[in-house]
């Protein structure tokens, strides 16, 4: 991968456009080189981020389903606040209509403790590819938590 092994992680900026709240995140270029490179190449991204309904304090930003990546730097049970991950679910993966049958490529953002990436049938394995800087996390998490009351928000992700 182009950037892996340089010892310097690339940085992305996540912004709730309506609230004006931003956070910087480091890509894990060495640990997840393919995923980080692919996400970097997709930027800038802008779309509606929704609150997860199975995983606790976690957000979901849907990608085009053509973004299919192999397993890399996988995480299942214990994300920490600020983790950014990629997840892909092929069609008909879960039992249960209609949601489990729908193909989906996603970026997940964990913003609080006690999250666990999971769907209706249990834990999901995800590609951990980035982490939000600690100094920016509290403000970002507060804006994310407001989505439970206020609904989905627009999120922009760009190269920093």
């Amino acid at each position: 991968m182009e950037h892996a092994g340089t010892g310097m992680n690339r940085t992305v900026k996540l912004t709730f456009t309506e609230d004006g709240v931003s956070a910087l995140a480091e890509l894990l270029d060495d640990e997840a080189p393919k995923t980080a490179e692919t996400i970097w190449g997709l930027l800038p991204l802008r779309g509606k981020v929704i609150h997860d309904i199975w995983s606790g304090p976690q957000l979901v930003l849907h990608l085009d389903n053509s973004v299919k990546l192999p397993a890399e730097n996988m995480l299942i049970y214990h994300p920490v606040p600020g983790d950014l991950f990629y997840y892909y679910r092929p069609p008909h993966y879960y039992r249960g209509a209609p949601y489990g049958r729908v193909e989906s490529a996603e970026i997940g953002i964990t913003y609080g403790r006690d999250s666990r990436p999971q769907g209706p049938r249990g834990p999901k394995a995800v590609n951990l590819f980035g982490t939000i800087r600690r100094a920016d996390l509290d403000g970002f998490a507060a804006a994310a938590a407001k989505m439970i009351d206020e609904g989905s928000k627009e999120l922009a992700i760009e190269q920093a």
Partner: peptide, 10 residues
């Protein structure tokens, strides 16, 4: 009413 964030469509 508030939507669940742990238990799916609730």
């Amino acid at each position: 009413s508030i939507h669940a964030n742990w238990s799916g469509r609730e």
